[in-house]
């Protein structure tokens, strides 16, 4: 008997990506650059977050034709973004046979209240989270991989750091709490009780947790790794920089050798212009993507 789309198969693919970098790409050419630089997967989307931020308008799933070109161009896994709650975009992406769906706050949400019921899909999902409660709710909805939200398209790592530190702190609390206090902890965090039990059984989040949202330099990537994430998503950081090929490779190297400042230093040399960053204080509250 052969069983497809099991949770072990879904979370298993994310386990295989650990220690790697997943890069946002909008075209097949960019996907090839990412693969050659050592990316473990690419994320297909219509526009990178920095452009969505600059241009405004409704951001949606990418053109299926574009996604097909990307699927044909590389042998590494291809992920693609769907709008929060847009279960038909997700169905379309599943029909295209993308390898992972990112139900992403980078795109304009399609449902003001509900996320996609991810258990009904054979393709796995990754979702963003700012804290443990959010991560646990997404896992309970069927997400097989989590990433911090950070603040996408800013080239500013501060929010990714905030979210990673908070999540780690809350995991430590869950692991050290006496069993009798777990239920009220679940209530306070807005975290399903069963997922907290799974955290205690595993001693960590039951799925892989990557860092995302504002990572623009090799040092940013290495810092997130030292803070304990399992891998890195780079959105606008690569293809909005002066020399995407070189920067992509450097971020990959820094992620692998994150404990070796000598290597991070040498790959950081002469990378050209980093993407122009945005200070979080300059973003009007209604333009913050992480609150979606």
């Amino acid at each position: 008997m052969v069983e497809k789309g099991t949770y072990r198969v879904k979370s298993g693919l994310a386990e295989m990506l650990k220690g790697g970098v997943i890069m946002d790409v909008t075209t097949a050419d960019q996907a090839i650059i990412a693969e050659r630089a050592g990316a473990v997967a690419v994320m297909s989307l219509e526009r990178v977050p920095a452009d969505i931020r600059a241009q405004g308008g409704v951001a949606r799933m990418a053109d299926p034709g574009r996604i097909k070109e990307i699927l044909a161009a590389v042998s590494i896994p291809v992920m693609a973004k769907a709008r929060i709650g847009h279960f038909v975009e997700a169905q379309v992406l599943e029909a295209l046979e993308v390898d992972y769906i990112d139900e992403s706050e980078v795109l304009t949400p399609a449902d003001p209240q509900h996320h996609i019921d991810k258990w009904t899909f054979a393709v796995p999902f990754v979702c963003g989270a700012r804290n443990l409660g959010e991560a646990c709710r997404r896992i309970a909805e069927g997400a097989a991989m989590i990433r911090t939200k950070g603040e996408p398209g800013t080239g500013n790592v501060v929010e990714a750091v905030r979210h990673m530190r908070l999540m780690n702190k809350q995991i430590r609390l869950v692991l050290s709490a006496p069993p009798g206090e777990l239920m009220s902890m679940a209530k306070e965090m807005g975290a399903p009780y069963q997922v907290l039990l799974a955290i205690r059984e595993k001693g960590r989040l039951p799925v892989v947790n990557f860092a995302a949202g504002g990572i623009a330099t090799p040092s940013d990537a290495a810092m997130m790794m030292q803070l304990g994430c399992d891998g890195i998503f780079v959105g606008s950081g690569v293809f909005k920089s002066g020399d995407p090929e070189k920067r992509a490779r450097a971020i990959v190297e820094a992620t692998t050798h994150y404990k070796e400042p000598g290597i991070v230093a040498s790959v950081s040399e002469g990378l050209g212009e980093a993407m122009v960053g945005i200070s979080i204080d300059e973003i009007p509250p209604h333009e913050m993507m992480q609150v979606r």
């Binding site: 008997m1 069983e3 497809k4 789309g5 099991t6 072990r8 693919l13 993308v98 390898d99 992972y100």
Partner: peptide, 15 residues
């Protein structure tokens, strides 16, 4: 042959 079992939707468990 790389990815011979197909894309992720075809990933599976068996005995």
């Amino acid at each position: 042959a790389r990815n011979a079992s197909g894309r992720q939707v075809d990933s599976f468990e068996t005995m």
